[in-house]
């Protein structure tokens, strides 16, 4: 199969995800409302309580609402990554995943296409959020709006790969809700999304270590620095390495010979 055919396949998967996104407007609004509630209510409430001192990439004191904005962008990517992996479990149960997996392209490419399609949808949500935030006086440098794209894509791919890996481990749709609670909330709260790590260190060394080892922290920092026109090299390396590892494990999970699916006592056994 040629590269041209692979690109057509990629276009097909992205188009389908886009059409589903348009058809499921409720999903879009709920994905947007979540971070906006945090920005309008949580950040406003804690604005006077939580001050953030000058830490990179900021060159001056920033308001709390400005500090948590990259964290909320990460939240959109995190929820979207998990949402798209949830849709994979659903697709697997409903059968449409079979259509994808029986296509004549390498499985890693099919899964990567699915991931990228999810990231495209998430990036659109991020920009709508940034537009609303602009009216809330959250105004990063203009270049930041462009430079943040690669950070969002890399972060989205890493989080999507993690979701994909989880979806290959989960046997049934019902079990996925539990996994979401055990993954999404701890990942979000135990990161630098809501508070700088030095504040964590002041309250608990253990918690600081957990936050430092949490890959989501690096997605948030990558996005934060990119939004202000800078590169956080450690975050970049961690995000890329974790992304490759998670995707590799997910491809193994979806491999019929070696994967978790092959070992499960599930699957189509009707006839």
């Amino acid at each position: 199969m040629s590269w041209l055919a692979a690109l057509r396949c990629l276009r097909g998967v992205i188009t389908r995800e886009g059409l589903r996104f348009i058809n499921q407007r409720g999903r879009f609004f709920s994905a947007l409302v979540r971070p906006l509630v945090w920005l309008f209510i949580f950040a406003a409430g804690f604005r006077s309580v939580l001050g953030v001192s000058i830490i990179p990439p900021y060159e001056t004191y920033v308001l709390y609402s400005e500090y948590i904005t990259p964290g909320l962008l990460g939240m959109i990517m995190l929820f979207n990554g998990m949402q798209s992996s949830l849709s994979m479990v659903y697709d697997r149960e409903m059968g449409s995943m079979r259509v994808l997996l029986t296509s004549p392209l390498p499985r890693w490419f099919l899964l990567f296409s699915k991931l990228l399609a999810g990231v495209v949808v998430a990036v659109i949500q991020v920009y709508v959020f940034l537009l609303v935030a602009w009216f809330w006086d959250i105004r990063p440098p203009v270049m930041g709006y462009i430079l943040v794209v690669p950070a969002l894509v890399l972060g989205g791919l890493m989080l999507g790969s993690l979701g994909l890996l989880l979806s290959s481990l989960v046997k049934q749709l019902e079990n996925f809700a539990g996994v979401m609670n055990f993954v999404i909330f701890p990942m979000f709260f135990a990161s630098s999304a809501l508070y700088p790590l030095w504040r964590m260190l002041e309250s608990s060394v253990v918690l600081w270590w957990i936050c430092t080892l949490n890959p989501f922290t690096y997605v948030v920092e990558l996005v934060r620095f990119a939004l202000y026109g800078r590169i956080h090299w450690l975050a970049l390396v961690v995000v890329v390495v974790c992304g490759v590892l998670f995707l590799g494990a997910a491809v193994i999970g979806y491999d019929p010979l070696r994967g978790f699916l092959a070992r499960k006592d599930g699957g189509p056994r009707a006839g």
Partner: peptide
């Protein structure tokens, strides 16, 4: 159309 693109048409 989705199926056709999956097969690289």
């Amino acid at each position: 159309r989705y199926a056709a693109e999956l097969h690289g048409l």
